[in-house]
């Protein structure tokens, strides 16, 4: 079972926050194909988000092929999010190390780097908005 949390100060729409948390759960293996997701009512009651927001997040994930709704029985995990190929992971990591080195060289502190990464990630999320 996953527990959802909404960061109200985040500019990210609540349904995207939920969708992201499901993806994380899939990636980390907390949710596996065939698992049943909490019902909309359960999510509403436990996290204090609106039912339409939960539905929207679930629909988003259904469209991405990760979840499926079975009439009358709930929403289930359809596909796992495979972990990334170790080789690709290594290559991406290498680039990041170089990039962080460059940023430090330019005088950026850890906080600046966090902010920068955050803003780039947020842009990416925003582009997911249909």
């Amino acid at each position: 079972m996953v527990e959802f949390r909404i960061d109200k100060a985040s500019g990210l729409p609540a349904y995207l926050q939920l969708a992201r948390q499901v993806r994380e759960a899939l990636r980390l293996g907390w949710l596996k194909p065939g698992d049943r997701l909490p019902t909309v009512r359960d999510v509403v009651a436990s996290s204090g988000v609106n039912a339409n927001t939960v539905l929207k997040a679930y629909r988003e994930l259904e469209r991405a092929g990760l979840l499926e709704a079975r009439q009358g029985s709930g929403t289930f995990v359809k596909a796992a999010l495979g972990s990334v190929d170790p080789e690709v992971m290594e290559r991406v990591r290498g680039k990041l190390v170089d990039w962080v080195g460059e940023a430090r060289g330019a005088g950026l502190e850890n906080e600046d780097i966090d902010a920068l990464v955050g803003s780039v990630l947020a842009e990416g999320e925003r582009n997911e908005v249909p």
Partner: peptide
């Protein structure tokens, strides 16, 4: 501030 996720 408390409306995020509450209202749609």
């Amino acid at each position: 501030t408390e409306l995020a996720g509450v209202a749609d």
